[in-house]
C-alpha cells in the first residue's frame, strides 16, 4: 500500500509539474524572440538617433562662430597697429 501511495504521489507531482510547466513554455516560447527583436530594434533606432544628435552637436560646437572670426580680425589689426606705432615712434 505504501509503495502504491508513494508512486501515486510521485505521479501526481510529475503531473502537476508538467501542468505548471507546459503552458508557460507553450505560450511564451514563440512570442519571446519576436518581442525581444522588436525591443532590440526600437533601442537600436533610439541609439542611432542619439548618436546622430551627438555628432550634430559636436559639429556645431566645434565650428567657429562669429565671435572667433571677429576676435581673430581684432588680433590681426591690433597687432599690426602696435607694430606700426612702435615703428612710428622709432622714426
Amino acid at each position: 500500500m505504501t509503495v502504491f501511495r508513494r508512486v501515486l504521489c510521485l505521479v501526481l507531482l510529475v503531473f502537476c509539474l508538467l501542468l505548471a510547466g507546459q503552458p508557460t513554455f507553450a505560450e511564451e516560447s514563440p512570442a519571446q524572440p519576436e518581442l525581444l527583436q522588436q525591443q532590440n530594434q526600437q533601442l537600436h533606432q533610439q541609439l542611432r538617433d542619439a548618436r546622430r544628435e551627438i555628432a550634430r552637436l559636436k559639429a556645431e560646437g566645434s565650428a567657429p562662430g562669429w565671435k572667433d572670426v571677429v576676435t581673430g580680425l581684432g588680433f590681426i589689426f591690433g597687432l599690426s597697429g602696435v607694430v606700426m606705432m612702435v615703428n612710428a615712434r622709432r622714426r
Binding site: 572670426v69 580680425l73 590681426i76 589689426f77 597687432l79 599690426s80 607694430v83 606700426m84 615703428n87
Partner: peptide, 20 residues
C-alpha cells in the same frame, strides 16, 4: 618693410577668414 604693414594685415585677415 614697415610701410607694407597695413597691406600685410589686410591679407592676413583675408587668409584667416577664407578658411571659413
Amino acid at each position: 618693410p614697415a610701410d607694407d604693414l597695413p597691406k600685410v594685415a589686410v591679407l592676413t585677415s583675408a587668409f584667416f577668414v577664407a578658411s571659413l
